[in-house]
């Protein structure tokens, strides 16, 4: 008998192994839930890993106040359907208290501010492991990230001094006050995620599927029209059939012209695309090492 194993099942099995390892090695883990497909995948894999028991850790959503409404609706549906526990941290609160200062101007984004709220919530919740949906194929700094990524007491990442990770032996030991970021889907690519969702038939937010929406163009990208972005006088709003390839804040999520209304069509589109999904993220374009710099400070 030939014990061949399909690679998507192998990725699934690896991620489930990591999830269970987290539940065993940490006291108080939490899933970072952004509402994007990667954190949805993470949540779904957690549901699978512990079935028929409930997911033994809560989800944490950092609400920047600039979300797509569809993201919030989907989040609430997921929680309701699978008996999950959800905590929400609000960036608006930090702004109101004067703890962080809102960016001004055309390209203002709350992306940087959310790191503050995230670290604050992690500290308040006394979480010792935060699971994130980061994938190594996403960005060059992420290509070097470990499954178990150690953070010092300030939440900082030291990329030059990471713990070696061998075989399937994971070391989650830490000193008081330190914590871990854990990335169970490190080895998945964007295409793998879509192929897997198609195989599993799991529902996703409708933002990922083609729909009509008022948009405008900036720096060669389309952005969804909303109250959170100040438009330049030259930027005209028009209706276009689009979909999101990633979901972040409305202020920094580029949307794409597309007619893909099913997962099969999305897979066809992704498989032939010449631009990475983060190619539409204005937050990555600020400098060559924008992601590494944010990660060092504690961003996911």
């Amino acid at each position: 008998m030939d014990y061949k194993f399909d690679y998507l099942r192998e990725l699934e099995s690896e991620s489930i192994f990591i999830m269970r390892e987290v539940a065993s090695q940490f006291q108080n883990p939490v899933i970072l839930f952004s509402g994007g497909k990667d954190s949805i995948l993470l949540t779904y894999l957690a549901i699978k890993a512990f079935y028929p028991a409930r997911v033994p850790f809560p989800l944490l959503h950092i609400d920047t106040g600039h979300n797509f409404q569809e993201t919030l609706d989907y989040r609430d549906w997921l929680v309701e359907n699978y008996g999950l526990s959800m905590k929400v941290g609000y960036v608006q609160e930090a702004i109101d208290k004067g703890l962080v200062k809102e960016e001004k101007g055309y390209n203002a984004s709350r992306n940087f501010l959310q790191t503050f709220t995230l670290l604050d919530e992690l500290e308040k919740g006394k979480y010792d492991a935060a699971l994130g949906g980061g994938r190594r194929d996403e960005e060059k700094a992420r290509a070097k990230e470990r499954f178990f990524s150690h953070r010092d007491e300030f939440g900082q990442w030291d990329p030059k001094n990471q713990r070696p990770e061998l075989w399937n032996l994971f070391n989650g030991k830490k000193n008081f006050g330190e914590h871990f970021r854990v990335f169970p889907i490190s080895n998945w690519t964007e295409l793998d995620v879509w192929l897997y969702f198609e195989m599993e038939g799991f529902p996703l937010p409708n933002l990922y599927f083609a729909h009509e929406r008022p948009v405008f163009e900036r720096d060669g990208m389309l952005l969804a029209d909303c109250d959170y972005i100040i438009k330049k006088p030259t930027e005209q709003v028009f209706v276009e059939t689009i979909r999101c390839r990633t979901i972040g804040d409305m202020t920094c999520t580029g949307v794409w012209k597309s007619n893909a209304v099913s997962l099969q069509e999305i897979i066809a589109e992704v498989a032939t695309s010449r631009i990475t999904e983060r190619g539409g993220r204005t937050d990555d374009k600020r400098s060559e090492t924008a992601m590494e710099d944010r990660k060092r400070q504690g961003y996911f």
């Binding site: 194993f5 399909d6 690679y7 998507l8 192998e10 990725l11 295409l191 498989a271």
Partner: peptide, 10 residues
């Protein structure tokens, strides 16, 4: 013509 069959290995 995209053939991502479910028996490809890693």
């Amino acid at each position: 013509d995209i053939d991502y069959s479910l028996d490809s290995e890693l």
